[in-house]
Write a protein that binds this DNA or RNA. Structure first.
Length: 854
RNA sequence: GCGGACGUGGCGAAACGGUAGACGCAGCAGACUUAAAAUCUGCUUCCCGACAGGGAGUGCGGGUUCGAUUCCCGCCGUCCGCACCA
């Protein structure tokens, strides 16, 4: 009984692929291209099995498309800037560049051991000046096009990482990496004008028909388009005019107050000579942005004592408040409150004793008896109490008010977006330097292109908190490029999402002296199939879409959407364990005693927690090296593909990987010890075969058709099941007629081998070789099903009586409906139930079912 | 609160509106072994039954249909995203 020697085989075939540059992608406009990309990893240390699921899927797609004749680009690189490197430097005295390079070396080795078909000649790491110099140039181009700008603003400050976070990086009020409660700080920051494309980023989602619906919805919500109106309210003392944004201009006659954000310019102006208001605003800032803080924070307002004049009725006045719940960043930073038809406004009005004027009457309601209680009426209805709007629908009233406002100059219809500009400044060392210089005389001066790249200094000190670039003795001190007087460099670095927003373009011509060669990008882009985690649904995936538009505007290329197809894979989960102290334990630290109790190494009780995504922090990880050492890369790959649908989470179990390993050996035995002698490759199959062998051939060709379809539709678990079905059938082969069985078995084994090629490439190469082929399987074409053989000539038809299955009929394919009906009605199981009566109805679905209604 | 996804054996899961549970894991029985591992064979949704067969069954309650895991309506539960967005 021979065992498959994966160690020898995997090393051998990896060597063969490397020597032959099998997976090198060559620019060839004559051939159809296919660009497969998995989201590139951050080099955090070592890979565990959870990391490689999406690379396994990407590799399957890449190898499959290659076999189908596409010119495939399948590159890999490293998202190499980021805080963990810097934190390691602070903790362990190792330079971030060294730490990063070591991790890359480790992880590259791990990926290579998995046998992924990458074009390693295109490998990139974003921390190299050869990479980041190009994004410094992009930034200068963005500046020139007013796509980048600097402004002072309230930002999200992570007190643990000592840096600013983008809105997208704040999850439930906490930093996405540290989990620390985010604070508000007023800082001068660089922003990218993503809002210039709000409308296009939103409307183009519709065309991304190979993206998951859920990701498109998340982006749609994130961009958050709201149609409404800007309305100007003059103050009664004539000092200024307050502009508000509303989505309900139809309820304008129900207004009973104006509320300004604490950061509204007019609030701040009033606070300058109103200490009580200044104190109120300071208090608002003290309340965090966390979920708890918002939930529990009372809706509070400060009455300014000023009134505003109703824009549609000069006689009406409403009081102006400063209120803690009004955001400066959305709309105009001011609202009008209509308590009758907005719950929050109602709560505010009740609290401060403001009038509640209903202006939308629910259908079939008597206006005389309609009153607002504790619940605002937010549904549709007929406008009343509203002058010229009375009797209109909500929709009509919105239009009528818009027209009136525009005619009188008191406002206009407009669209507000939730999306805000992307703050890209980070007060950290390990990132791409922002290429500008601050000069006392000239202001902000871009670094001249000839001086790029602005390199990170290597001699930095991490002993003190804060940004080492800022503390560096010499680096930031430069002459102003304009006036040559002493000036200082910008010491902030880019958000690392800057690097990942265009790396897919760099892969198209990874060694080019420019960011990317236009011709290469025009050929390879867009990415045909992108694969990664759903956690980037709004971050990376939205920024990349923005970058394509911005780069197009700057003349780099002409393409809006970077990723034509997107697949978001599920996570790999594993049981978690904790001891009585709540400390996490590695799976290998946990044992089961004879009574079935879980114990740690010192025989103390252990609690099994829920299944969670594999993560170092919870210690529920299975090392990739251990698995590859024990079972080989192919076994791990098969398991990652077979047990769950790709989009769903997969539970990693020891028994599961063992099952995959058993199958690997079964496959190897099938080709190395066939039950009948196999004819040489290419041998003809006898035209006339015993029925069992003819059926086996049909199974073979049906499997080709089904697996091809499954792979096209990303149903990898089903594809594996189909292949296993075929190999099960091949194992049941009747060896009594070797002359007929041999060719059929060869066809079946070759089919299994070829279908498995993209999933278990080393084993498949070894089987292919064992089956007598000199060429590599990686260079063989994808099998094509014989359409005639892939269809059954006999079909099993189910027979139902009153909706219940009572029998089955084996009949020739496409038998006439009348014959099928006749055969069904003659069945004893059917006649018994009919009791001699004529059926009321008979439905015949060709080749499927007969449904008899008694 | 808003939006979305999901709910099928002991477990992971299959099933163009057409024979529910393919494929695998675990389990049970057996074969081969001095024995174990490995491997092979059979069984394995639940209930009644020795078999044949019958009944129930896809979270719950309705509906459409000859026929519903699938479509529609209403609940319940789990997970995810957003959340003071005017």
């Amino acid at each position: 009984m021979s065992r498959y020697n994966f160690r020898e085989s995997e090393a051998k075939w990896q060597q063969r692929w490397r020597d032959g540059a099998t997976f090198a992608a060559r620019h060839d406009p004559a051939r159809p291209k296919y660009y497969v990309l998995e989201m590139f990893p951050y080099p955090s240390g070592k890979l565990h099995v959870g990391h490689v699921r999406n690379y396994t899927m990407g590799d399957l797609v890449a190898r499959y498309r290659r076999a189908c004749g596409y010119n495939v680009l399948h590159p890999m690189g490293w998202d190499a800037f980021g805080l963990p490197a810097e934190n390691a430097a602070i903790a362990g005295g190792i330079h971030p560049a060294v730490w990063t390079a070591e991790n890359i070396a480790t992880m590259r080795g791990q990926l290579q051991r998995m046998g992924f078909a990458y074009d390693w000649a295109r490998e990139i790491a974003t921390c190299h000046p050869a990479y980041y110099r190009h994004e410094q140039k992009m930034f200068l181009d963005f500046l020139a096009k007013d796509l980048a700008y600097r402004k002072e603003s309230w930002v999200n400050w992570d007190p643990v990482d000592h840096t600013v976070l983008a809105n997208e990086q704040v999850i439930e009020g906490r930093g996405w990496r540290t989990g620390a409660l985010v604070e508000k700080r007023l800082l001068s920051q660089w922003f990218l004008r993503i809002t210039r494309y709000s409308d296009d980023l939103l409307s183009a989602l519709e065309k991304l028909d190979r993206w998951p619906e859920r990701v498109r919805l998340m982006q749609e919500h994130w961009i958050g388009r709201s149609e409404g109106a800007r309305v100007r309210w003059p103050l009664s003392d004539g000092r200024t005019t307050i502009e508000v944004f509303t989505t309900r201009p139809d309820t304008l006659y129900g207004a009973s107050f104006i509320a300004l954000s604490p950061h509204h310019p007019f609030s701040e102006k009033l606070a300058a000579d109103n200490p009580a208001l200044a104190e109120f605003i300071a208090e608002c800032d003290r309340i965090g942005t966390s979920e708890e803080a918002i939930e529990t924070a009372e809706k509070r307002g400060f009455r300014t004592g000023i009134d505003a004049v109703h824009p549609l009725d000069k006689e009406r006045r409403v009081p102006v408040y400063v209120a803690n719940f009004v955001l400066m960043e959305y709309g105009t930073g001011a609202i009008f409150g209509c308590p009758g038809h907005d719950q929050r406004d109602l709560d505010f009005a009740r609290k401060y004793g403001l009038p509640v004027i209903p202006v939308v009457l629910p259908p079939k309601t008597d206006p005389a008896s309609f009153a607002i209680g504790d619940t605002a009426y937010v549904e549709d209805g007929t406008i009343f109490n509203s002058s010229f709007l009375n009797g209109m629908s909500v929709t009509d009233a919105k239009r009528a008010v818009g027209e009136r406002l525009e005619a009188s100059g008191a406002g206009e219809r407009t669209i507000a977006y939730r999306l805000r500009d992307w703050g890209v400044s980070r007060q950290r060392y390990w990132g791409c330097p922002i290429p500008v210089i601050h000069c006392a005389d000239c202001g902000i001066v871009p670094v001249p292109e000839a001086d790029l790249p602005v390199r990170l200094p290597e001699d930095v000190d991490f002993a003190a908190p804060g940004n080492p670039l800022d503390r560096h003795p010499t680096w930031k001190h430069v002459a102003c490029p304009n006036c040559r007087k002493p000036a200082v460099r910008e010491t902030d670095t880019f958000d690392t999402f800057f690097e990942s927003s265009w790396y897919f373009l760099r892969f198209c011509s990874a060694r080019a002296p420019v960011a990317f060669e236009r011709a290469a990008a025009d050929y390879w882009m867009p990415v045909d199939q992108y694969i990664g985690g759903v956690e980037h649904a709004v971050l990376h995936l939205l920024y990349s879409r923005f970058f394509m538009r911005a780069l197009s505007e700057c003349g780099y290329l002409r393409l809006d959407e970077p990723f034509a197809g997107l697949f978001t894979q599920g996570m790999v989960c594993h049981q978690t364990y904790q001891n009585a102290e709540g400390e996490w334990l590695f799976p290998e630290e946990v044992q089961t005693d004879p009574a079935g109790r879980l114990l740690d190494a010192d025989s103390r009780p252990v609690v099994a927690g829920r299944l969670e995504k594999m993560s170092k922090s919870k210690k529920n990880v299975v090392g990739l090296d251990t698995i590859v050492d024990t079972y080989g890369a192919d076994t791990a790959r098969l398991y990652l593909l077979s047990d769950s649908p790709p989009e769903r989470d997969l539970e990693w179990t020891d028994t599961g990987i063992e099952g995959a390993w058993r199958y690997v050996n079964r496959l190897w035995r099938m080709v190395s010890e066939p039950p009948v002698p196999l004819p040489p490759p290419g041998a003809a199959i006898p035209a006339s075969l015993p029925p069992a062998l003819a059926a086996l051939r049909r199974t073979t060709h049906k499997t080709i058709a089904a697996v091809t379809d499954d792979i096209d539709k990303f149903r990898f678990n089903r594809a594996v099941a189909r292949i296993r079905e075929l190999s099960n059938a091949l194992e049941d082969l009747d060896p009594s007629d070797p002359a007929a069985a041999g060719p059929v078995l060869r066809e079946g084994l070759e089919t299994v081998t070829r279908l498995l090629g993209p999933m278990m490439p080393h084993l498949a190469e070894e089987m292919w070789h064992e089956l007598g082929h000199a060429e590599m399987l990686a260079d063989a074409a994808w099998p094509v099903a014989d359409a005639a053989l892939a269809r059954d000539e006999q079909v099993t038809i189910a027979v139902q009586v009153n909706g219940r299955l009572r029998a089955t009929l084996d009949l020739p394919r496409d038998a006439a409906a009348s014959e099928v009906e006749e055969a069904a009605l003659a069945l004893p199981q059917v006649t018994r139930l009919l009791e001699g009566k004529v059926p009321r109805k008979v439905v015949v679905v060709p080749n499927r079912i007969v449904s008899v209604v008694a």
